[in-house]
Design a protein around this nucleic acid. Structure first.
Lengths: 358, 358
DNA sequence: TTGAAAGCGTTACCAC
DNA sequence: GTGGTAACGCTTTCAA
């Protein structure tokens, strides 16, 4: 390995000077600077990041903690995060939690030992032990996909997304709606809110509880089946599911019940994974601006690392958009986009320093 | 940060001794060892891996270079690799190449600068610049998903996989077959070989050229459409596709042509991603033993890192198996497994130090 | 068995 | 402006 000293020796300067031209901080005479640069290229010198880390600057390593890359939604995020990070000279250390708090803790521990400069995390819950560790180790952290009261976070406005879906289904003429997910979901709130605003009593929108953890856990189908077996289920033409997996389970199950889609039943998913594109019928789904999210997340981290930014946690709340496909259209037609405020495409992204939703 | 010196001070020993009990190499008196361990837990000491790396031992970092995690097949591998690595105390630095050689090179460069102990790579081609760099930097490397003449590699026997598919389709009564992929694919060879062994002339099996790079590139459909438009395509009931994406494209396109599956047309994919499970009709696909592959890959790396193992490249060739689903069954039925040698499940994995296939 | 001390490759502080 | 030098936290001689 060729070091800073080798360069120094060849260029007849001190290691300190080499370091200086490398970091471009202090002034170095034009003459020496050229000599140093000359030898750097000549010997193909590459700074040893490990040494740089040790002296306490930075590791150029970012941790990414996610429940499961097998989930295509997370896979997309991870990919974009890696690419975005790379542009800033950072590499990504990937960790899985399987949505288990103890594993999350272990993984976070390992990241801390590795001196990562920052972490992007999709936590189990806002107060997960992993999050706590990160905070007490004072490692810049940004939470993605969820809001966090005391950390930087970037996510989509789930509440608004839910409202968009309600608006869409209502405009398709459906007045009997159902939600597949958890009662507390912000999507569900938005969904109900918008329904109410259009004269559909929120109390008449059942929430079919779906415990969705990972790709593996597809006991979803039995739940869905139970719903379609019920009187209520038989009469509901408008279904909104917390994500594409569940939506597809609904779609597939509905087919077993001879309910045609589109036609008898409309289903809308969330996340707009490519599953929505590939499946037949194709699935209407709420798209999150992933590229934007990844960009913002890394940007937030960079700011913290540069020591900029107040201590206030920054909440970046982006606007989702509904991508309409066959599963919710009354007639055959090409896919199109839709959003609450306008049928045209939203300038998908808006930052507020605070806000509700999620 | 609490260091080795802190422990030393508290335990009334020298830093060297602390290091010794930590690494368990040299003898340390029972008394001091206990004292040190006591303080280690008491102060919650965690070794600084960066410092350890600098002194030249190891970084505990493994690079994973893959074309695209958005591909569920790769996502699964990455996940398993990470989990497997974690068990051995390693973390994973994830890199994307987008199947582009120059990006691969850049990513590999960054891994080398980071002093990763080893790399698991899905290379663009055997002689990609990334691979070359890795070799000249003498970083232990294992190639997964492909064979490599001069590096450790672990992959499935594609040739055998292709043969299994042929056997399966033939046993379903199809004698007119087609392959969607590239002529040189080992799968295709195996497919033809087995067909020939059963009296179906390989020359009568067309290879519909599909250029599949990533999830994004789904111009696949037009190619597929062109095939179904042809006389040849209209009469082919048995299709084998190089992966699940292409298989699904075939399935979906076939539906547009009113070709019923199962019934008029059978389609078999490769990789057995969850897409195969989720899609309707569900897709018969060749499964790769991913867990086993990840395990072997990490194991190979560990061996190299321990300085064990001859200099011979090790080829670990595992056996795939066919998971039969609706897309290739003549009647409704539950999913089942199938393999060339036996209808029962294969002891899925066999190592040879060399072998053809792929 | 144990301690002192010399690095590992950089950065940063302090003189000159 | 520039060079010496002391860290950073750890491992590993080399003596004792």
């Amino acid at each position: 390995m060729i070091t800073i000293k080798d360069i120094a020796r060849h260029a007849n300067v001190s290691p300190a000077t080499v370091s200086r031209v490398l970091n471009g901080k202090a002034w170095v005479s034009e003459e020496k600077r050229r000599a140093v640069n000359e030898w750097i290229t000549r010997l193909g010198y590459k700074p040893n990041q490990v040494a740089q880390t040790l002296v306490g600057t930075r590791s150029f390593l970012l941790g990414v903690v996610i429940t499961d890359v097998s989930n295509p939604f997370f896979a997309d995020i991870v990919k974009l995060l890696q690419q975005e990070a790379f542009l800033s000279g950072y590499a990504i250390v990937l960790c899985h939690t399987n949505a288990a708090e103890d594993i999350e803790r272990q993984q976070v521990d390992s990241l801390i030992r590795r001196q990562v400069d920052g972490v992007v995390i999709v936590p189990c819950r806002a107060e997960s032990p992993g999050i706590r560790k990160l905070r007490q180790a004072e490692i810049p952290t940004v939470v993605v996909t969820q809001q966090h009261p005391e950390l930087d976070s970037v996510c989509v406005d789930h509440n608004a997304g839910g409202a968009m879906v309600a608006a869409h289904l209502l405009s398709a003429g459906h007045t009997r709606l159902a939600y597949f997910g958890k009662k507390q979901d912000a999507k569900f709130n938005g969904f109900r809110r918008e329904a109410a605003a259009n004269g559909v009593s929120p109390d008449r929108i059942p929430c079919v509880k779906v415990d969705y953890d990972s790709v593996e856990t597809i006991d979803v189908e039995s739940t869905v089946r139970r719903f379609f077996d019920s009187e209520e289920g038989r009469q509901t033409p408008g279904v909104f599911a917390l994500n594409d997996f569940v939506a597809l389970a609904a779609l597939n199950t509905a087919a077993e019940y001879r309910r045609r889609t589109p036609g008898d039943l409309s289903v809308v998913g969330f996340d707009n994974t490519y599953l929505a594109r590939i499946h037949r019928p194709s699935l209407t789904s709420v798209a999150q601006p992933l590229q934007e999210m990844a960009h913002r997340a890394i940007e937030l981290l960079r700011r913290r690392l540069a020591g900029q930014g107040d201590n206030e946690p920054n909440l970046t709340l982006l606007q989702p958009r509904v991508v309409v496909r066959r599963s919710s259209s009354r007639e055959a037609g090409t896919d199109s986009e839709y959003s609450l405020e306008d049928t045209a495409e939203l300038p998908n992204g808006a930052t507020r320093s605070t806000g509700e939703g999620n």
